[in-house]
């Protein structure tokens, strides 16, 4: 009972965070890059979160710092999932041959620390948010391919897929009619997990100083640049950190609920006793 209430509260907080992240920059707030006071000014009515390490409005910076992050994560998830679906379904249906080799390479790549790969790929184009997006997409791709490939391979052993392939239905017809509808829930859950990982990676990239350079706000970077003053003025660190926590935990719980085995397929009604 309390779990359900907690879950609902977290979902509401998640939606609110997404809203702040995406629509925040349109709010009538002071400029996030302009100095409005001394560093680490305490919270007041006009500046609810006080000022940051350089004396900029902490609320404005927090509100501006989420959009890039969320958009990057969303775009990386979408791109990764689409490519993952295409490669994964084809590789899953293939029996041996080069596509199975693809899956083996992908398995190896998935074990290399994602943060390291993100850093190494994004390091080549410093100061570019797009480079971070590309790096995060490439990192999340092996996981998508692996999960979708495994789900498809499981279906490929079932009689209806074998029958369709045996009577000569095209590979894409089989994927469209037989595979995609039946792996949809797994694919959505996987996309949810990828989004969580992408959010973490994008935030960490900001923390490490990748992506758009200094004055631009980014929740990851806000946590780092204001950590020095956290003893005196916690809000400039706490606000972006809390938003990141809500984003991460909310998405995790939502994805957990999608993947939990309690949800049964509808067509189990007619199981003869």
């Amino acid at each position: 009972m309390t779990r359900a209430i907690l879950g609902r509260l977290l979902t509401a907080a998640l939606l609110l965070t997404m809203l702040v992240a995406l629509a925040g920059p349109w709010l009538p707030l002071p400029s996030p890059t302009e100095r409005v006071g001394v560093p680490f000014e305490p919270a007041s009515w006009s500046r609810p979160f006080g000022t940051d390490v350089l004396g900029r409005d902490a609320l404005a910076r927090t509100v501006h710092g989420g959009r890039t992050l969320v958009l990057q994560a969303l775009a990386a998830t979408a791109l990764g999932s689409i490519v993952g679906l295409v490669v994964g379904t084809c590789a899953g249906l293939a029996r041996g041959g080069p596509l199975k080799g693809v899956l083996r390479v992908v398995d190896g790549l998935a074990a290399v620390p994602p943060l390291l790969i993100t850093l190494l790929i994004a390091a080549g184009r410093p100061g570019s948010d797009f480079a971070v997006l590309v790096a995060v997409t490439l990192v999340s791709l092996p996981f998508s391919v692996r999960v979708i490939g495994a789900a498809t391979a499981r279906l490929a052993g079932l009689a209806y897929v074998r029958t369709a392939l045996a009577r000569g239905d095209g590979r894409f017809a089989v994927i469209r009619h037989d595979v995609l509808p039946n792996i949809a829930s797994e694919a959505w859950a996987e996309a949810g997990l990828r989004f969580i990982a992408a959010t973490q990676l994008c935030a960490t990239a900001g923390f490490l100083g990748l992506g758009a350079p200094a004055p631009a706000a980014n929740w990851g970077r806000l946590v780092r640049e204001n950590a020095v003053g956290a003893g005196a003025q916690p809000w400039p660190v706490l606000a972006p950190a809390l938003l990141l926590v809500v984003l991460a935990l909310g998405m995790t719980l939502t994805a957990d609920r999608l993947t939990s085995p309690v949800r049964r397929p509808r067509n189990e009604r007619n199981t003869a006793p």
Partner: peptide, 14 residues
């Protein structure tokens, strides 16, 4: 698992 490492570490520092 949900929390990025840098948040955990920053939390420790603070």
């Amino acid at each position: 698992i949900a929390l990025p490492e840098f948040l955990l570490a920053t939390g420790l520092v603070v």
